[in-house]
């Protein structure tokens, strides 16, 4: 009975989702992949590291005997967001995304082509790229509650 009353007067734990949104982890592995054409050398390490083989990359050689990426496509409908491709990229050209509302009516719409991957509206996640972490809003945690920046600093010094 005492427990019931204690719970009657505590604050809410849940939030009203579509109206209120919590911020996700800085390292979240979500949609949409971000690909940077200026850094990519077309080595296809990402394609080799993918457990499902959903990355398709076609390259050709130009005059100075270097690879040029003609096309890169992700079949994100089959992706399991393990993040191995991002970890594998030796040139930091591939990033995970931060958005999560990616339901589509057709599987074909989940096919991410070159334009989608380079869309400037994509939000970049810091998964595999810790140098980006400070730019991304801090995750809202249930347990986090009253932990202040001072406590974080004290813990790590």
């Amino acid at each position: 009975m005492a427990l019931t009353f204690r719970h009657l007067f505590r604050s809410f734990i849940t939030t009203q989702y579509p109206e209120k949104r919590l911020s996700t982890s800085r390292r979240i592995r979500g949609q949409q992949f971000v690909w940077r054409s200026d850094l990519c050398t077309g080595c296809a390490t990402c394609a080799k590291s993918c457990p499902h083989g959903i990355i398709q990359i076609t390259t050709s050689t130009n005059g100075d005997n270097r690879y040029v990426v003609d096309n890169i496509e992700f079949d994100t409908g089959r992706c399991m967001f393990c993040g191995l491709c991002v970890e594998a990229c030796p040139y930091n050209a591939l990033y995970m995304g931060r958005s999560y509302e990616q339901a589509r009516y057709s599987r074909k719409l989940l096919w991410a082509d070159m334009e989608t991957l380079m869309d400037p509206a994509n939000q970049v996640s810091a998964y595999g790229h810790p140098e980006l972490e400070w730019r991304i809003p801090r995750q809202s945690l249930l347990v986090y509650g009253q932990i202040s920046q001072e406590m974080v600093d004290e813990e790590n010094d």
Binding site: S25, I28, F81, C82, G83, V143
Partner: peptide
Amino acid sequence: EKILDLFEMVCGQRLTYN
């Protein structure tokens, strides 16, 4: 939920951590 939040913070997913 609190534990899953902690996992999400570390590895970016809440169920399939890898």
